[in-house]
Design a protein around this nucleic acid. Structure first.
Lengths: 250, 250
DNA sequence: CGAACGCTTGAGAGGCATCAAGAAACGTGG
DNA sequence: CCACGTTTCTTGATGCCTCTCAAGCGTTCG
């Protein structure tokens, strides 16, 4: 059981919304049990059924699929506070695999717990919807980069997206991050080989857009890096003013 | 005013859900006014605000964005019965442009009309959520193709996605479609130039995967075409069994 | 019928993939 | 704390795929 104060889920949500006690209870119920994952351990098989969903408590996970000829595409990276499977709730079969990018701890919960939230908290329903839209926008940005940008720009996008997402649950964070993702995985996010990623990182460093020290990446001029690829931080501000606080009865 | 019986929106939704009279009324309200669009006319500017949303009544639209160096990425194609802007509801700024791919008729409605639906019909809320997830899956499929597949396979995906979507509102449709999209636009959906699209279509025809007659495309062996790129029709069946029919009050 | 538009075809260039080998980092066990 | 094996990253050589540029062809519509 994860201590309620330490919950990344509640921390992430509180960044956008003042929670009622009832809502906190509903959310805490999602993190009652936990499971440890080794690095590279598969949490959901690619062709598996989706019986339960997971709150990410520690570590990074990723959603992926393979093509027929064995190449891999990585769709999303899941950070602490994310709910894995939320965007597949309407379907029995997910069609994508989920695995641990680092050692990780996840909290499994049954689908119906999410239903309980959907039917009791309009504000959380709206927020989860907003999260889904944000994740969607992240994918669109990556599609644009994959389809229409060069290798260096694509890699830079991945780095900036990770940083932007980490800042939600860790607002004091400076302009740097420890990147636990292998270069091969970064490449699989934007349609590149591991070799091109290595090359792109070298290029970005030479251009002064990033600085590297082992696993640690920092941005000497974050503004310039963002401008370079027309990046916008979609996570930071959500317009919550339209959120309903309670249902109307027809 | 579009006749209620002729509404593509209601036809699309009825494919998944039995609507109550109240729900039909709520939906009909979205199509009270209409506006005609010329081909290539811009409906929403790329940097514009999102004040209203639109039901597509006739014709095809598309959502797009540009990169700094002037290249274009097309994200979604909107068919009759779709709601343009639904997936951007939570945000003031959309960041993407919307334009008409063919002559088209759209029905504008204010954001708050959608809110009225969200707060009064749990089933429609769930369905719109499911639609958003489907659109998301469509994008993921295209990201996978763009990142990890060759030109011919990417173009084939676009064709199959269009066919699958058209079948929702037109179940009698055979294995063919009239494709009004320019090759340049098809290319912009999967990161190709118009020239590569032309080349890919020739290749697909030679491989016997498609047949062409001017604008009309057909699939002599749809099954084989789908297997070729590991395509799955995500639109056809949605699991609606979990949809709530009314809200619980906390 | 003519002009505009979109599609096709060809030639050459560039970017990224693949293959291969070496270097660095990491982890494990002594 | 060091030695060794494994994993990950880097660097180089070669080839293929898709891009760009350019010209010709076909269709459509005024």
């Amino acid at each position: 059981m994860v201590a309620r104060d330490g919950s990344c889920l509640i921390r992430k949500i509180s960044h956008y919304l003042d929670l009622t006690e009832d809502e906190k209870r509903l959310l805490a119920r999602l993190e009652e049990t936990s499971r440890k994952l080794r690095r590279d351990e598969i949490l959901i098989e690619e062709d598996g059924e989706l019986r339960e969903m997971f709150v990410v408590s520690e570590g990074w996970l990723y959603t992926y699929t393979h093509t027929l000829d064995g190449r891999r595409q990585v769709f999303e990276v899941h950070f602490p506070g994310d709910i894995v499977g939320a965007s597949q709730a309407p379907f029995e079969r997910i069609g994508y695999g989920v695995a641990a990018a680092t050692e990780a701890i996840v909290c499994p919960f049954p689908k119906r717990s999410l239903n309980a939230i959907f039917s009791r908290s309009p504000a959380l329903t709206a927020l989860f919807y907003a999260f889904a839209v944000l994740d969607h926008a992240t994918i669109l940005d990556r599609l644009r980069a994959t389809g229409r940008m060069g290798a260096a720009e694509r890699v830079l996008l991945v780095l900036l997206q990770c940083l932007a997402r980490l800042r939600i649950t860790d607002p004091d964070r400076q302009d740097g991050l420890d990147m636990p993702l292998r270069q091969e995985l970064i490449g699989d996010m934007v349609g590149l080989s591991n070799i091109s990623v290595s090359h792109a990182l070298k290029e970005l460093a030479q251009a002064g857009l990033i600085e590297r020290d082992a696993r640690h990446f920092s941005f000497p001029d974050l503004q310039r890096a963002q401008t370079q690829i027309d990046f916008s931080d979609r996570y930071y501000a959500i317009d919550t003013s339209w959120f309903p606080r309670q249902w109307e009865i027809a």
